[in-house]
Design a protein around this nucleic acid. Structure first.
Lengths: 110, 110
DNA sequence: ATCTTTTCTCTAGTTAATCTAGAGGAAAGA
DNA sequence: TCTTTCCTCTAGATTAACTAGAGAAAAGAT
């Protein structure tokens, strides 16, 4: 019941997933590792959230997938950002900046 | 269906409400006005979210209410931050900083 | 006087994202 | 052979926030 930083994740997961795919094609597990690694203990994306998010994003045409092999020779589904997804990422990035700016303003000024 | 900054609000509403009550006792409508005023167009708290949030926070012992009169002579329920609520606010503030810091890191580094 | 707007509280029902708590499978390492 | 690591996926529950109102009392407008 303890509140963790993850409880704030709502609405932001899509953004960071899209962002993670901007630089290179990755598979689900790789996205998770990468995000957790960068954020360290501050927040962690779990698989029960990530995979539904990937399906959602693909359904909306923001990413597309194809099966491939990792360096280790294991099967993995690789996700690639589409043009539409790239635009969406920019939109969500702007929203995030607007939102977090407003929150910080309120926290400062009220 | 258009995504607005409000969709990111989840998990943050409680924090900004508690914060708004830190400096002074306010009634629901006053909290809404104050927040909307500071955030301008960046985000707006609507009543269908705010009043349930106030009930929730009171139930959890973070705020307590009492009926009073505004300067205009209207009935209004005034909310006051409790000690427990004040501690909770500090906790949530720390979580917000941790969370938004992590998100910004990911947006920058991935 | 009546009508509309403003101030103020509150709720029912819906939506949808996330979490918990797994299952399952294939390759690598012990 | 056993365990660990890598990798994908899902059912069901939770719960916050939204939509779309109702209602009531005071003030302002005509």
């Amino acid at each position: 019941m303890a509140k963790r930083a993850n409880d704030l994740l709502q609405g932001t997961l899509d953004l960071i997933v899209l962002r993670a795919l901007q630089s290179e094609t990755r598979h689900g597990w790789g996205i998770q590792q990468r995000i957790n690694q960068i954020a360290e203990d501050a927040l962690s994306v779990n698989q029960g959230s990530l995979y539904p998010a990937l399906l959602r994003l693909e359904k909306r045409g923001y990413i597309k997938s194809s099966w491939g092999r990792t360096e280790n020779g294991r099967r993995a589904k690789y996700y690639e950002l589409t043009k539409k997804g790239s635009e969406q990422m920019e939109t969500e990035l702007a929203l995030w900046r607007q939102f977090s700016g407003a929150i910080n303003l309120i926290l400062k000024e009220v």
